[in-house]
């Protein structure tokens, strides 16, 4: 872990966690060639919560995969804390995904044979962290998402919302610089989705976690501090959203003037 911390400290010298420049991605060849991204550029600063919206096929998920090093661009570059991911060796890419980026997907991808806490500890164990330390940090991450009482449960004994919270704990256990979330509430009912979104917002507010989230739900995107709207593989619009200044009860009192 000390290695990761030191790495993050030096990486933190760059003000931007993500820098995407002229990013293009095409799939297929010849007549079947489809451009998913047609030159996208933007930056995300440390502690920002950015939501990417757009109709299906607009390139949202492709963009997230490229930033997470899960796929390589056709042209353009991705920098994570100033480092050009395109120049990384396979080993460096693995370390990037393992230590600096946490992933949360629509599917929870938990291992059935492991307990809640063991699932969360897994990324640390794979990274060679000693078992005692891995267990201690997993317990802390499980507590962070409000599942302390479920540590020894197996995934099948947890509700969908609890499983997704566990997946968030697993993504956070390595203390990643960046959390990438791809439709994190896609498999959940609306009340449970609200809980998950509340957990994400809280991570930003209290821990300064940097989050990039893809969603098609405006109500969830509206929790971010910045909104990027993709259309036909290009950035169509950008909107900064002011942080909350009014209490829930004040917001309630002014609800009547709805459009």
């Amino acid at each position: 872990m000390t290695g990761t911390t030191a790495h993050q400290a030096t990486a933190g010298n760059g003000a931007f966690v993500i820098e995407v420049e002229g990013l293009q991605k095409s799939f297929g060849a010849g007549d079947n060639r489809v451009a998913a991204l047609r030159g996208v550029s933007f930056r995300v600063a440390r502690g920002e919560f950015v939501a990417i919206m757009g109709p299906s096929g607009s390139g949202k998920s492709t963009l997230l995969h490229l930033i997470g090093g899960l796929d390589t661009p056709t042209a353009g570059s991705v920098r994570i804390s100033g480092q050009d991911v395109g120049a990384f060796t396979d080993d460096q890419l693995t370390l990037l995904r393992r230590r600096q980026i946490g992933f949360v997907f629509q599917a929870f991808n938990l291992l059935d044979v492991l307990t809640a806490e063991e699932n969360v500890a897994l990324p640390l164990i794979l990274d060679g962290v000693a078992e005692g330390e891995a267990q201690r940090r997993a317990a802390a991450a499980v507590e962070l998402v409000g599942l302390a009482g479920r540590r020894r449960h197996f995934p099948r004994e947890l509700s969908g919302g609890e499983q997704q919270r566990l997946a968030i704990a697993r993504a956070l256990v390595t203390e990643p610089l960046l959390l990438l979330a791809d439709e994190p509430t896609g498999n959940l009912d609306s009340a449970t989705s609200a809980q998950i979104m509340s957990v994400l917002r809280d991570l930003v507010d209290r821990r300064g976690q940097t989050i990039l989230m893809v969603t098609h739900d405006a109500r969830h995107a509206a929790l971010a501090n910045r909104l990027l709207r993709l259309r036909d593989g290009q950035l169509a619009e950008e909107q900064h959203l002011a942080p909350a200044s009014r209490s829930p009860s004040r917001v309630l009192e002014d609800l009547e003037t709805l459009p």
Binding site: H220, A222, L241, R246, S247, V251, L252
Partner: peptide, 13 residues
């Protein structure tokens, strides 16, 4: 969206 942002933050809080 600005309005929804305010409401969504109130919901999260």
């Amino acid at each position: 969206f600005e309005r929804l942002h305010e409401v969504a933050q109130a919901q999260a809080r």
